[in-house]
Computed example of a mutant assay.
Amino acid sequence: MKKIFFYVGCLVLLALSGSACSGQGKANKADTADSTEVSVDSVAADSTGYIVKVGEMAPDFTITLTDGKQLTLSELRGKVVMLQFTASWCGVCRKEMPFIEKDIWLKNKNNPDFALIGIDRDEPLDKVLAFAKSTGVTYPLGLDPGADIFAKYALRESGITRNVLIDRDGKIVKLTRLYNEEEFSSLVAKINEMLAGK
């Protein structure tokens, strides 16, 4: 009887961990007031797990890209910046990434006023490189060990894919979750508008 309970418990845990990408995982909400410091303890999450809001300054971080270079978000001030939170195990990410490559990166990669960073959630370099190759993306991907960068933007246990669009002043202007054609089109349109309105 104990073995049956153990196996059922394992199956439940597997089901919960597998739902992170699809957004079906449970997200805890903090009941405390807003604070300028972004942490799970001090900021309430929205219904999609984001702990940041449109209009707020994007939390700063330094990331190591797959080519070994380090990049700090605040050093990109003056540019329109898109962050894409992703991982190789996320089917929705794999569906969305070729569209990011074609409709955003290839159209804007030579624009000095634009930056795109894919942030791979808690996977080793070899896996991230294989992921980029299998999805055919050429935009920069960086490593997020322990999902510590992700946790500055959303509850650590909440799912991906997520895109965060940041203006030239470092403020968040758009947040997306999962892949939806209409929402993705509005993201592309917003990027085009921001780049045209220099």
Rank of each mutant, 00 (worst) to 15 (best):
K3W: 11
I4S: 08
F5K: 12
Y7S: 12
V8M: 12
G9Y: 03
L16M: 14
L16D: 08
S19K: 09
C21N: 13
C21Y: 13
S22N: 11
G23C: 07
A27L: 12
D31L: 15
E37A: 15
V38P: 15
V40L: 13
S42F: 15
S42P: 08
V43Q: 03
A44C: 14
I51G: 07
V52R: 12
E56K: 11
P59S: 10
P59D: 11
T62C: 06
G68W: 07
L71W: 13
T72Q: 08
T72M: 02
S74F: 01
S74G: 14
L76K: 08
R77G: 15
V81W: 02
V81Y: 04
M82Y: 01
M82S: 08
Q84K: 11
A87N: 13
W89F: 12
I100V: 14
W105P: 01
W105S: 02
L106F: 05
K109V: 00
N111G: 12
D113R: 02
F114P: 00
F114R: 01
A115G: 08
I117R: 04
D120M: 04
K127S: 10
K127T: 11
K127D: 09
G136S: 10
L143Q: 06
L143D: 05
D144W: 00
A147K: 04
A151F: 00
S158Q: 05
G159K: 01
G159L: 03
V164E: 02
V164K: 01
R168Y: 04
R168W: 01
D169F: 05
D169S: 12
D169I: 02
K171S: 09
I172L: 01
V173R: 05
L175S: 06
R177I: 07
E182T: 15
F184T: 10
K190N: 07
M194H: 10
G197F: 03
